[in-house]
Design a protein around this nucleic acid. Sequence first.
DNA 1: GCACAGCTAAACTGCTTGGTTTAGTTATCT
DNA 2: AGATAACTAAACCAAGCAGTTTAGCTGTGC
Lengths: 207, 207
Amino acid sequence: MIQNTSRIKKGRKFDQVIAGARTVFLRDGFEGASVDDIAREAAVSKATLYSYFPDKRVLFLEIAALETRRQADAFEERIDDTHPPEVVLPTAGRKILDFLLSDFGIAVFRIAVAEGERFPEIGHKFYDSGPRLVKDRLSQYLASWVAQGALTIDDVELAAEQFVELCKVRLIPKRLFQGPSAPDSAERDKIVESAVALFLACYGTRP
Amino acid sequence: MIQNTSRIKKGRKFDQVIAGARTVFLRDGFEGASVDDIAREAAVSKATLYSYFPDKRVLFLEIAALETRRQADAFEERIDDTHPPEVVLPTAGRKILDFLLSDFGIAVFRIAVAEGERFPEIGHKFYDSGPRLVKDRLSQYLASWVAQGALTIDDVELAAEQFVELCKVRLIPKRLFQGPSAPDSAERDKIVESAVALFLACYGTRP
DNA sequence: GCACAGCTAAACTGCTTGGTTTAGTTATCT
DNA sequence: AGATAACTAAACCAAGCAGTTTAGCTGTGC
């Protein structure tokens, strides 16, 4: 990444700071992370860090935005509009679930939820650059198949949100409140499969 | 409440402490709440507070357990097994949604999510005395109507979790990440209605 | 009216934190 | 080589925190 020149802030070690902050924030959360830790992890002096960012909160916002954006981008490219729902939904659902269940996805979600009340911008940024993009992309896909007559949906946005929520069933709460567990790939498939069945039983056009 | 005598810990002002801690923890979260604040809110000296609870974390656990238990109990009594799904699901769904959307429900959820990684007991206690009880009660209801032939479900627990998740669509993320908004009773009904439709289209036995 | 358990305000300890400053070192550009 | 901008380690500051201690007050039982 050479496009440092396009950054608003300047400095040779900018990327190091971003990387270090990412690591520490994701490991310890916002309150849990100390600026000293971040500086140490980034192998940078605190003074340098503070020359890039005015305070801890702004640094965190930067990281959160980068991360969620990255998440949504990765998902965006996975939907193939030329394939029908029966084949796209299972793989897309699995992709979504896999990300949400990753240590990464869980940590970002935790922080967004925890800090969302005190710092509304965090909540906004997280939603706008993560879940919202997924919803938009998915509902666009659904709309195209509604037009082709393979689906019958009056509110595609709502349907998209319902599908995502159905994929989260059981495993997300389990991970959130019962801690990490075994990989469980079969169980993930089962959940997604059930979500797809439920979804298509209602919105699918029966032949 | 006179049954103070049945408490493990003793002291005249125990209930005051609980009430104060409840207020402050729900307002500021775990890290955000200071013991001084709690003592002030409870109109009690810090020394008294520490005579009841060995440390801040234990006090918090006590509050969290009380709150989630209270939530589930309130719900438990609302399901009438003698009425069919078409009538029970909408009202039960609306009840669940109303609680989850309350300032109260949101605050408890936020704390459970935020603190769940560092203090797994908090996550466990929250899940066991909240969502889990709701799931159990709901799946028991569903099972009874499966037996009567009005529903066709092979995994009732999964179905119960799916229904709850469907009720949370849109409004919970909105509240979590976009802040509080207008009452929106009509929108709530719409979401629940759509959840019921989706649910019954798949699991309902068509006449 | 005495004893005792519960309570109190307030000071205090020890520690961590975000953020600043200083005085000096390193890299980069011409 | 010299100038300039970026970086550094380390000390420092002020504030906030959990938890303890002290020295004394209050209410209740007998």
